[in-house]
């Protein structure tokens, strides 16, 4: 096993666990609204990015592939934030 690759995978796992606990804490604390939603979905984007780069090994593939998957990830995290914001903005 290349120590560097294994360390990178384990570091990504640690960050994923940390962000999941952060999301769970934010969601369970009763803190709601645009900022809470934004924080939780930003954590989901960051987690997805680490999975793509370190678990799915997209770090070493041509940039176009990374851009494609990151655009998908951005769409599925930003659009839910925007649609959740509509009823909140309406009051």
């Amino acid at each position: 096993m290349t120590q560097t690759a294994a360390r990178q995978v384990t570091r990504a796992w640690g960050l994923l666990v940390l962000l999941t606990l952060l999301s769970l804490g934010a969601g369970g604390s009763g803190w709601t609204g645009l900022a809470a939603n934004g924080l939780i979905l930003a954590a989901a984007f960051a987690k997805g990015r680490w999975m793509l780069m370190d678990f799915l090994k997209l770090r070493g593939v041509p940039a176009g592939w990374r851009a494609l998957f990151l655009c998908w990830l951005a769409l599925v995290t930003v659009i839910p934030w925007a649609t959740a914001a509509l009823p909140l903005l309406r009051g």
């Binding site: 999301s23 809470a36 939780i40 954590a43 989901a44 990830l73 599925v76």
Partner: peptide, 9 residues
């Protein structure tokens, strides 16, 4: 992605 979408936000 599904977890925050369905359970949290």
């Amino acid at each position: 992605v599904m977890y925050p979408l369905v359970y949290l936000i």
